[in-house]
Amino acid sequence: MSFRLILASTSLIALAACGEREPAAPVEATQTITLTAEAIERATPVAVAPTPTPAPTEGEAATPPAQPDPGLIRVQILLDRSTFSPGVIDGLAGDNTRQAAAAFRSANGMTGDAVDADLLRKLAETDRSAAMTEYTLTEADLAGPFSPPPGDLASQARNGVNYTSVRERIAERFHITEPLLQALNPDVDFRRAGVRIVVPAVSDNALPEVTRIVVDKTERSLRAFDASNRLVAFYPATIGSTERPAPSGTLTVVGVAKEPDYTYDPDKLSYDRGPNKITVPAGPNNPVGSTWIALSRQSYGIHGTPDPSKVAKTASNGCIRLTNWDAQQLAAAVKPGVEVRFV
C-alpha cells in the first residue's frame, strides 16, 4: 500500500498497510424509546456491567437489541471530549466505554471502572458544557460525492470510498452511530438542507505533543503520553488477529499520511485478497480510513476505519485501527521518532 506521508523532510514514502471493511449492514431502527436532548442532559447512566447477548437456541426468539441509555450517551460524549475516547457514541454498555471510564478515573484520582454517577459528576466538573447541541444541514452536506457501500477492493477502486449518504457523513462528524443519530431525530429527512437536527456536542480538542504511545494488545487500547509521561489520550483499538498478529516490542512513528490511498500488492503482502495489484482512492471509507500513521516496520501502522462501530470488536491484518476522528486527533500530535511500544 502506498501513502502520501507528511514528514519533517516533506519527502514522500511508499508503504504498505492493512485493513478491510466488512460488508456494510443495513441501519436498523432503534426508536422504541424516546430520546431528547433535554432527557440526555438530565440523565445519569444505569450502572450495568456489559454482558454478551447469548445466541438464541432453535425455536427461541432472538433477544431484542439493547436500547440506548440517555445517561450513557451523556457519559460517552463527555469522555469523548476529555480525550478518553469510548469509540463511537451509541448509548450502549460495552468494553470500550468501560475501559475509557477506567482510564479517566485513574487519571483523575478515582479507582475502579464503574460507569456511574460518580464518574459523571467528575466528568461534569472538568467540562461544564452541554452534552447536546443542534446542527443545521447545509447544501455542502448534501452535495456529495457519495459512493455505494464498500464491497471488495476491486469495487472500491471502481466506485470510490466516499460516504454512502448524508446521514453517514453527519454521524461521523459527530462521532455517533447512524441508528442513534436517527433515533435522536426520528422524523428528519437527511436529504433536506436547512433542517435542524440534535447531535452530540463533540469537539476536536488538540492533544499536546505526544512523545510515547503504548498499544495494549490484550486490552485492545492505545494510550498516548506527553513529555512529562502524563497520559493525554486513551483510544479503543482493533489490534491484529490470531492469524496476523500485531508486532511485539518497540517501533517508532515514521510519518503521517492524511487522506491516504490504499494499495494492495500481492507481491508485498502475505494475506490473500487476489492476484492483482489494486489501488483504492482516498476517502473516509477507504480500508485504512482517513489517516495513516506509518510505523518503522514495513506495512504496519496506526490508522482509521470505514466502520467505527467495530473498533476493538473485530480483527485487523496486524495494524492498529482507531475511529477516523481518534486517528486524526492522534496524528496531529505525533512526529517521526515517537516511540510506539506493544505490550
Rank of each mutant, 00 (worst) to 15 (best):
4 R>E: 10
4 R>Y: 04
4 R>T: 08
5 L>C: 08
6 I>H: 15
6 I>R: 15
7 L>V: 09
7 L>G: 09
7 L>D: 12
7 L>Y: 03
8 A>C: 03
8 A>W: 03
8 A>Y: 02
8 A>V: 06
8 A>M: 07
9 S>T: 14
9 S>V: 07
11 S>L: 15
11 S>Q: 13
12 L>D: 15
13 I>Q: 11
13 I>T: 12
14 A>D: 14
15 L>D: 01
15 L>H: 07
16 A>P: 08
18 C>Q: 10
19 G>S: 14
19 G>C: 10
19 G>N: 10
20 E>D: 10
20 E>F: 05
21 R>P: 01
21 R>V: 04
21 R>I: 01
22 E>H: 05
22 E>A: 07
23 P>M: 03
23 P>F: 00
23 P>H: 06
24 A>E: 11
25 A>F: 00
25 A>D: 05
25 A>Y: 02
26 P>V: 06
26 P>I: 10
27 V>H: 01
28 E>W: 09
28 E>G: 06
28 E>H: 11
30 T>F: 00
30 T>S: 11
30 T>A: 06
31 Q>P: 01
31 Q>W: 02
31 Q>V: 09
32 T>S: 14
32 T>G: 12
33 I>N: 12
34 T>W: 06
35 L>G: 08
35 L>H: 07
36 T>Y: 04
36 T>H: 10
36 T>P: 07
36 T>M: 08
37 A>H: 08
37 A>Q: 11
38 E>H: 13
38 E>Y: 05
40 I>N: 07
42 R>Q: 13
43 A>D: 11
43 A>G: 13
44 T>I: 11
44 T>H: 00
44 T>L: 09
45 P>W: 03
45 P>T: 07
45 P>D: 00
47 A>W: 01
49 A>M: 02
50 P>E: 04
50 P>Q: 06
51 T>R: 15
51 T>M: 13
52 P>N: 10
53 T>V: 15
54 P>G: 08
54 P>N: 09
55 A>M: 11
55 A>T: 13
56 P>F: 00
57 T>D: 06
57 T>P: 02
58 E>R: 11
59 G>M: 06
59 G>Q: 08
59 G>V: 08
59 G>P: 03
60 E>V: 14
60 E>S: 12
60 E>H: 07
61 A>W: 00
61 A>F: 05
61 A>R: 14
61 A>H: 04
61 A>Q: 14
62 A>V: 09
62 A>I: 05
65 P>K: 07
66 A>V: 02
67 Q>P: 00
69 D>I: 02
69 D>R: 11
69 D>E: 10
70 P>F: 01
70 P>Q: 10
70 P>L: 07
71 G>Q: 01
72 L>P: 00
73 I>Y: 04
74 R>N: 02
75 V>D: 03
75 V>W: 00
78 L>H: 04
78 L>M: 09
79 L>T: 02
79 L>W: 00
80 D>F: 06
81 R>F: 01
82 S>M: 05
82 S>R: 04
83 T>D: 14
84 F>R: 07
84 F>C: 10
